[in-house]
């Protein structure tokens, strides 16, 4: 019982769109998918003509589809953008080195320049070395914080005006749920914005052109277009708590496919009570990166690694910031608490 495409009513439909419930054939799906991203880009005014844009490329499905679609749309609608790929090498043997191979192939397929920045050259530590010191408990904190900054540093080296990341609708909805579960109102308010503003120096504005694209459609787009992507889980196990939110979101989607959009819509429309304290953004007095504290998270984490006190940057230890800045040693008692835990 082949279903006909509800748009062209000529060809056989290949998928049912979760957002709208429409059944579309391959060509109509490609068109609708690309057009929607175009709409997102245009209505949110993500780019200006002549800008150079770095596409954060991990080799995974989202960034591969993002790179492909950006290239297609840039040509189709003459955005006049100069696109390039920007990758971060965390230094994870058996994971990132493989996925970077994918990115290198993408570079050739799409004929885009590629820049790879590595944790090792930026921080002097690979993730493999970090895990050796801190264990598998807080390693994702290090990786996340370092990656964020690494992308910015890479973007500055490449002299791009903007970075676009492959966050899709599922990711955004999942983050909304996570922040609700954590009661993190500041992030809850920030996480649904499609682009960060460029007020802060040393930070390149970011945007998420795939914010309204369902993961399901991204995967199918990559599959039908035969895009070359990499899909293994990071060997240093992912965030367990995030897993709960993800499972819940996927269950929601199977009950009512529009749920993902509904969650994003909710996140966009939460009204925060006046007088709730929001962190004030300043700059790190060591590296100049944005930070709500005297030192940015990356600098504190790095200091912890270099002093052999990996827990220095985990949790709230603002009181140590002055000591770190003046390069004073910590007391024995303090050191004892910040040493790696036995595991």
């Amino acid at each position: 019982m082949p279903v006909q495409c509800s748009s062209c009513s000529e060809k056989r439909a290949v998928l049912k769109r979760p957002k709208t419930g429409h059944s579309l054939c391959k060509e109509c799906f490609f068109w609708a998918f690309e057009e929607e991203i175009h709409q997102t880009i245009v209505s949110a005014k993500l780019f200006k003509t002549g800008e150079s844009v770095g596409i954060a490329a991990s080799g995974g499905k989202d960034s591969t589809v993002l790179a492909h679609v950006m290239k297609v749309l840039n040509e189709r609608y003459s955005y006049g953008l100069e696109l390039m790929l920007l990758s971060v090498d965390e230094g994870i043997t058996g994971y990132r080195d493989d996925s970077l191979e994918t990115v290198k192939r993408n570079q050739q397929q799409y004929e885009l320049p590629l820049k790879i920045v590595s944790y090792e050259e930026l921080y002097g530590w690979t993730m493999d070395a970090i895990v050796k010191q801190v264990g598998l408990k807080n390693n994702c904190t290090f990786c996340g914080v370092f990656r964020r900054q690494a992308l910015d540093r890479g973007a500055i080296m490449l002299k791009v005006d903007k970075i676009c990341t492959g966050h899709n609708a599922d990711d955004v909805a999942e983050t909304v749920l996570m922040n609700v579960l954590r009661g993190d109102i500041a992030r809850l308010r920030r996480c649904t914005t499609i682009s960060t503003d460029s007020e802060n120096e040393g930070v390149v504005p970011r945007c998420k052109p795939l914010k309204y694209a369902y993961e399901k459609e991204i995967v199918l787009y990559a599959y039908f277009k035969k895009l070359d992507y990499f899909s293994t889980e990071c060997i240093y196990s992912p965030n367990a708590y995030r897993g709960y939110a993800r499972t819940y979101l996927k269950d929601l989607e199977s009950v009512r496919p529009s749920s993902i959009m509904d969650v994003i819509h909710s996140g966009e429309n939460l009204s925060v009570r006046e007088g709730v304290k929001m962190p004030v953004q300043g700059t790190c007095s060591r590296c100049g990166y944005i930070s709500s504290q005297k030192l940015c998270k990356a600098c504190v984490l790095l200091e912890g690694l270099n002093r052999g006190l990996p827990k220095l940057g985990i949790g709230k230890h603002h009181r140590f910031h002055d000591k770190i800045l003046s390069q004073q040693p910590l007391t024995e008692e303090e050191e004892r608490k910040l040493k790696a835990v036995d595991f």
Partner: peptide
């Protein structure tokens, strides 16, 4: 949930 199924390259929700 989260695993897509394609039958003859078409979404199984259609089939």
């Amino acid at each position: 949930p989260g695993i897509l199924v394609l039958i003859n390259d078409a979404d199984w929700e259609l089939m």
